[in-house]
């Protein structure tokens, strides 16, 4: 068996993303470097053969997923219920945490102008954020950060996949607010 065949079989059988370390457990002959190389081989091959699926990186893990253009066909089937789209309140808090982590509840509430207690609890329940430490301030407040599942939920390989803050339409500079407003308007979301 060649490494890419073993990795392919393992990826095929899994319903969740697998890290290179996890994939390497399939055989004694495999190490993480070989797994990563095998994934590259598979990616190129699927690309050449125009397969309906591809190996995607979600956080530290890899998973076989269908290509987006096949979604309309699959959506005609009964699907296993998946977590619903996040509410605006949850997204607002996640946005702030993603860009400002580690960050405490008070700071999140300062930005949003509303209480964040219940939404933080929900995000922790869904394992989209976790407590990453304690702040220095009064009462040593809990500090939150995003999780691996956060990356998986949004289909990101890492936080670097998010646009840098100064490339956003309304960028926040240390400099004059005037400069911030010259950026381009927001691109409309690509969703249906």
């Amino acid at each position: 068996m060649r490494p890419e065949q073993i990795v392919e079989a393992t990826l095929f059988a899994s319903q969740t993303p697998l890290t290179p370390a996890e994939l390497a457990r399939a055989d004694e002959s495999l190490d993480e470097t070989q797994v990563e190389r095998a994934i590259e081989v598979l990616r190129e091959r699927y690309e050449e053969d125009e397969r309906a699926f591809q190996v995607y990186q979600l956080g530290d893990g890899f998973q076989l997923l269908t290509r987006p253009e096949y979604a309309p066909y699959l959506e005609r089937f009964d699907s296993v219920p998946r977590p619903p789209h996040l509410s605006p309140a949850a997204l607002e808090s996640l946005a702030i945490i993603a860009y400002r982590q580690p960050i405490g509840r008070i700071e999140i509430e300062d930005v949003r102008g509303v209480s964040a207690t219940s939404v933080l609890r929900t995000l922790i329940d869904w394992e989209l954020i976790r407590v990453v430490g304690r702040g220095e301030g009064l009462g040593r407040p809990l500090l939150y950060g995003t999780t691996e599942r956060f990356l998986e939920h949004f289909g990101l390989a890492s936080l670097e996949d998010l646009p840098p803050p100064d490339e956003l339409p309304v960028a926040l500079g240390e400099s004059e607010p005037d400069e911030a407003r010259e950026a381009e308007p927001a691109a409309p979301p690509a969703e249906l």
């Binding site: 289909g155 979301p189 969703e191």
Partner: peptide, 23 residues
């Protein structure tokens, strides 16, 4: 703006189906 970025990413992720998608 970040919320828009996340919403777009969430929607795009929703178009990739994994094994076990069909009930």
């Amino acid at each position: 703006d970040v919320v828009h970025v996340l919403q777009t990413a969430e929607a795009q992720r929703g178009r990739h189906m994994a094994k076990g998608y069909i009930e």
